[in-house]
Simulated assay, not measured.
Amino acid sequence: MSRWPYVFFAAACFYIMIGVCWGMYMGISHDHATSPGHAHLNLLGFVSLSIMGGFYALLGKETPTWIVGANFGLMNLGVCLLAPALFLLLSQRVEPAQVVPVFMIGEVSILLGFLAFGAAVIGGLRRTGRAKAGSLKVAIA
């Protein structure tokens, strides 16, 4: 098996550790103003990367490495930009105009990461369809 699933799961573990600490901080401080950022970190960083890692481990084994690498890089860039920007904005530590460029890059990166994942899923579906069609021809002959 490729190392890529492990890389996705390692990144997901890193993000959930940060997310749990962030949640503990909110609970201790009774300040939940940054909870949308906390939720984005957990959903995009932990849940999405875990699902992607599971896909590549189970079904995406024949996905071209460049698609998997692009998926990983784009998602991580987006999470690393978006979560801190949300924290800074929601905690009112910066003016909105100061983080708009960071949001734009992070959001586009996340979108492109999901497009790369979609390409991997569709590519796997097409490969599976071709394999079944080939086995059907052999069975008929």
Rank of each mutant, 00 (worst) to 15 (best):
L115P: 09
R93M: 08
L82R: 09
V79P: 06
I110N: 03
M17P: 07
A119C: 13
R130H: 08
A120S: 15
A85L: 03
V94R: 05
H40V: 03
S109P: 12
M104H: 13
C13T: 11
L49V: 00
V7E: 05
D31S: 14
V102W: 14
L41Q: 06
S135N: 13
G106S: 11
E62R: 14
A57S: 07
G27V: 03
V102K: 11
L111G: 13
P5Y: 04
F46H: 07
W66A: 06
A119H: 07
M26S: 11
G124A: 05
C80S: 13
I51C: 13
N71M: 06
S48C: 11
F46C: 06
P101W: 05
G118N: 04
A10M: 07
L58R: 12
A133I: 02
A10K: 03
R126F: 05
Y15M: 02
A116R: 09
C21R: 12
A141P: 11
I18N: 02
G123E: 00
E107T: 14
M24K: 08
L74A: 05
A70W: 03
C80A: 13
L59A: 12
I28Y: 10
S135R: 15
A70V: 00
N71P: 02
G124Q: 10
L111M: 13
L49I: 03
L43W: 06
C21K: 09
I67L: 14
I140W: 10
A97F: 10
L43H: 01
P5H: 01
L74F: 10
L90Y: 15
E62V: 05
A139S: 12
A133W: 03
K61F: 05
S35M: 15
L77R: 07
M24R: 08
S135T: 09
G60N: 02
N76I: 04
W22S: 06
N71T: 09
